[in-house]
Design a protein around this nucleic acid. Structure first.
Lengths: 209, 209
DNA sequence: TTATAATACTGACACCGCGTCAATATGTTT
DNA sequence: AAACATATTGACGCGGTGTCAGTATTATAA
């Protein structure tokens, strides 16, 4: 089988190992000194490879980070299209609260890499583009959810779904960065509850029944 | 008079001119090729001065931009402590709508420099710090306004003022960047109205009177 | 087994941007 | 016109980037 042939190829194995050594070294350095202060020279020195080798495996520092982010990025994308089919305002609130909490907790539990990522968003074109993808996809799904709630007669229809969706995502995103930087005194639960309450009470309709 | 003496000093006058030439060249280049691609070499070449001269007048590229931003920064700060003394929910809504509209319009009318600024926030430590000052001051005043509304019995008290304030500022800020990047199809009026409505309806209390 | 091909690794090199500073030019005062 | 004060200058050292011709290692063919 071709796969086995390739696995058995000593050169291929070696290149996989080298690649991994570079990824490990890069991760360590990103955590220790941040994205900007990490250089290719430092990475290859720690990985014990030659300078040019880094460029054989990756386009540069940016790509190294993007590879390290793959898992987290995928988690963000998976999270975006969680089913959302509320039957009432309180049901919606519960679902949204759960999702916000999950979103903020995911950021918190990937604190280290997210910190590097947030630094790199400003510094690297390609990292910035990656994050914008996640933004767009999230906003798209939130818009869909709002439209659904409006169709079901749960949410007011005088508000444009997309504008609301952006506003809601921005709030979540910014709290995410704040939490990662420990720039907030409130707990995740308090934050999640507060912003969810405001969001739901601002968007959803009340029924006296 | 000392001022006149200084004005009459040819050396001082020359240095003022040189400084201005550098600022002009920097502005042009920032607009033409952005912050990152503008270099000191390009600036001094356009300003027709020697290389070291730029460093006599400014610490570097960052400071050049900060000087160019001075007016806009001041406008942001002035805007932050606009008096806010609403007597009712609808009064509050009107005041807030006015302020949001002003905020977004200010960004739009300073589009070029704000675009450079947003690029530089990720790239330059000092520019980032400057913007964070503006963030903090704004959040401080918004918190104060919310607390006032709560004291007056206009806004619900089960929400923590500071969390709400941050969330509100983040929304405004992100729409500001979106507008500057033309990353939005909605008009400023629609955006301002939608986010204000959500905000006010989520935070303020209704009275049946 | 040995020659040849394929693949992976390497570091010297050319380039670019930064900030400094000793030297120089220009303007002012005595 | 000498001495002083101030402003300007560009060559230099530093550190980062990405490339590429050459070298080493492994696989395959003869």
């Amino acid at each position: 089988m071709k796969i086995e042939e390739k696995t058995m190829d000593g050169r291929y194995l070696r290149s996989i190992m080298t690649r991994q050594k570079l990824l490990d070294a890069a991760r360590e350095l990103f955590y220790e000194v941040g994205f900007e202060k990490t250089t290719i020279s430092k990475i290859i020195k720690r990985a014990k490879t030659g300078y040019g080798t880094a460029y054989v495996h990756f386009k540069g520092k940016d790509e190294l980070l993007i590879m390290l982010m793959e898992n987290v990025m995928q988690a963000f994308l998976d999270m975006a299209d969680t089913p959302f089919l509320p039957t009432s305002k309180s049901d919606a609130k519960q679902l949204i609260l759960k999702q916000v909490t999950a979103f903020l907790n995911m950021a918190k539990s990937n604190e280290k890499i997210m910190t590097v990522f947030s630094e790199a968003i400003g510094l690297s074109q390609s990292v910035n583009e990656k994050w914008n993808e996640i933004r767009q996809i999230n906003i798209h799904f939130i818009t869909k959810d709002i439209t659904y709630a409006q169709t079901m007669g749960l949410a007011r229809t005088d508000l444009q779904a997309e504008i609301v969706a952006k506003s809601w995502f921005y709030t979540n995103e910014n709290y995410q960065w704040a939490i990662i930087q420990n720039a907030t005194t409130s707990s995740i639960e308090d934050i999640a509850w507060t912003i969810t309450t405001m969001y739901v009470d601002g968007l959803y309709l009340d029924f006296e029944q």
